[in-house]
């Protein structure tokens, strides 16, 4: 077990000032850590790995230009994926906020309806995936539906949680100053909901991405799932990794949009909490 004092003291840095500054900066350490992992993968992929299973990062970058971005069919599949995510997320936000406002409106509606939402949220939706494909077909509709059904729940839950956690003091203050019910909703409950709403929007994006990607991979007769299967079955890992990395970059891009919106639109400039970002959802 590590000593307790190590949790509070700064780690030993080397004597040169520049180095010690780098060694203490989490940002540069993080860059160094990622670079070290990439170098290790490069070394292993180049000299030790079986080329049927793994290729070094440089070969993956090369494959991105030679066999992913240069194939119009793959590019259009990626664009379709982006469209599906956008539509599914848009629907999740609109319906999620609307249902959240209805469920969170009164103490009674919360007590009656919120447990139903939580119960539905707890069910592993992936067991319905073949059914969703059966109903909506192999095209984009099924992927949008599955992304939507994943993304809507964290948004509802966090909207309701935000409306629930209004301080009694603020409500009583507003009432004693003669605020009407509409005033209280407009000036007390809604502003109080904003940070929690954005947490929900962030988690909703993560789950929308999950739902769309799951359905994309399951339907292996078309779209991105088809190409991942072709590359994997032909033991052609470089374009497979390149395709997966492009999808990961798309996912990061979507997540960053939501996070930047959160940081700029939240009153009081409260930075999005990173620790426990998942554990607050239920």
């Amino acid at each position: 077990m590590a000593s307790l004092s190590s949790a509070t003291s700064t780690p030993a840095a080397s004597s040169t000032p520049i180095w010690s500054r780098f060694a203490r900066s989490p940002f540069w350490l993080r860059i160094a850590l990622i670079a070290a992992i990439l170098l290790l993968l490069e070394y292993y992929g180049r000299f030790h790995a079986d080329p049927a299973f793994m290729r070094p990062p440089s070969a993956v970058v090369e494959a991105f230009f030679t066999s992913v971005i240069s194939e119009p069919k793959i590019v259009s599949a990626l664009w379709l994926c982006i469209t599906e995510i956008s539509i599914a997320y848009g629907m999740s936000v609109v319906f999620g906020v609307a249902i959240g406002l209805i469920v969170g409106a009164t103490k009674f509606s919360r007590a009656a309806l919120f447990p139903i939402i939580l119960l539905l949220f707890a069910i592993p939706q992936v067991s319905f995936m073949p059914l969703v494909i059966l109903i909506f077909g192999l095209g984009p509709a099924a992927k949008i539906a599955f992304g939507f059904s994943h993304g809507i729940f964290p948004i509802i839950v966090n909207v309701v949680a935000g409306m629930r956690d209004v301080k009694e003091l603020h409500l009583r203050g507003a009432r004693s100053m003669g605020a009407s019910k509409a005033d209280i909703i407009r000036h007390v409950i809604l502003p109080n909901m904003v940070p929690s709403l954005f947490t929900g929007l962030r988690l909703g994006m993560t789950l929308t991405l999950l739902g769309v990607i799951l359905a994309e991979l399951y339907v292996s007769t078309g779209g991105v799932g088809y190409y991942t299967r072709v590359f994997a079955e032909n033991y052609n890992p470089a374009p497979l990794f390149a395709l997966i990395t492009s999808l990961a970059v798309i996912a990061i891009f979507f997540n960053e949009i939501v996070r930047i919106a959160e940081n700029t639109l939240t009153p009081g400039k409260r930075r999005a909490p990173r620790i426990q970002s998942k554990s607050v959802q239920k």
Binding site: P26, L29, R30, L33, I34, R202, M205, T206, L209, L210, I213, L214, L217, T228, R229, F231, A232, P237, L240, F241, I244, L247, A248, A251, I252, N255, R274, I275, S277, K278
Partner: peptide, 21 residues
């Protein structure tokens, strides 16, 4: 401060992407 953002950042990407691997 160094590693936690890496883990939480990776967690926002659907790991499902890497399922073919």
């Amino acid at each position: 401060a160094t590693i936690e953002p890496v883990i939480s950042g990776l967690f926002t990407i659907p790991i499902t992407l890497f399922f073919p691997m």
